[in-house]
Design a protein around this nucleic acid. Structure first.
Ligand SMILES: [Mn+2]
Ligand SMILES: [Mn+2]
Ligand SMILES: [Zn+2]
Ligand SMILES: [Zn+2]
Lengths: 139, 139
DNA sequence: TTTCAATTTGTAATCATTACAAAATTAAAT
DNA sequence: ATTTAATTTTGTAATGATTACAAATTGAAA
């Protein structure tokens, strides 16, 4: 919990209890949670939590560079702490989003055909390894 | 217009007048139009056009492999004929979406870390060349 | 304790998209 | 030409994620 507070202070965000819990939930989760998933995960600990607070807080975190957001298949936005740059794979069957640490060119802060790149999102979509196995067993 | 009809027939889509006009609008546009943009562009020619028809038709086109859709920055879905695989760059200032034909690995139909890739979307976001110039002139 | 700014909340609004059933169109069958 | 059935198109209502906004709450300084 001290680790969480430290991160917020380093990014000039007042470490309120809500913000600490939201960031903690995000750090504990490895599943790229959506705003709604974070909201539901915290309802036990903060019964008075408002979904607007979750949205506001996530926006603040992103503006301050604490987290990153991305969206795959145009449903809801998903959030994660920014570790090393990586790609995402979303399974069409089970919906799981996997991190892919492959050999992708990182174009951030590079100039591409004259355009200044600030963000890069590599989204792969298909059938994950687990669902392929499941399909074979069913057949 | 014959070209349009031919494409529809080749993909086993009945070439109704609406479908031909929607596909034509998509072929004439090089701006990755959204469903709403296509709808507004056609309202002159088909005053009775329903937005639902545009959505239905675009979905049909995509299912039949005539067009592809993608989404960048999680606003609306955008559509294009599928030429060679390429990446997209969206300018944060003017909103323009550029095609980027760089040297990107095409992972379609490949296996990545055990996952079967069916779609690949490379989205770059930043400030486009034109807007960089404009900024310099203003300063 | 008073004050004031920052944070949080609840509700209503927005926007893209989908669901669904009725209406219109088309082509085939009589 | 008329009937029939399937397909296409339409209009409206519903959905779901997100945002706008104003009121309520909190928390630190004076
Ligand atoms: Mn990730
Ligand atoms: Mn393109
Ligand atoms: Zn799966
Ligand atoms: Zn621009």
């Amino acid at each position: 919990m001290d680790r969480v507070k430290k991160i917020l202070l380093e990014h000039e965000v007042v470490p309120s209890i809500h913000r600490m819990l939201i960031l903690q939930a995000l750090m504990n989760s490895c599943s790229h949670p959506s705003a709604d998933e974070i909201y539901r995960a915290l309802l036990n600990q903060i019964p008075t939590l408002s979904k607007t607070t979750v949205y506001n807080t996530l926006k603040t975190f992103e503006e301050k560079g604490i987290i990153e957001s991305f969206s795959i298949m145009n449903n809801e936005v998903r959030y994660e702490l920014q570790p090393h740059p990586h790609a995402h794979f979303k399974c069409k069957l089970c919906g799981t989003i996997y991190d892919i640490y492959g050999s992708f060119d990182c174009l951030r802060d590079k100039i591409v055909e004259g355009h200044k790149v600030q963000e890069q999102h590599i989204n792969l979509i298909g059938i994950c390894a687990a669902c392929q196995k499941k399909d074979k067993n069913d057949a």
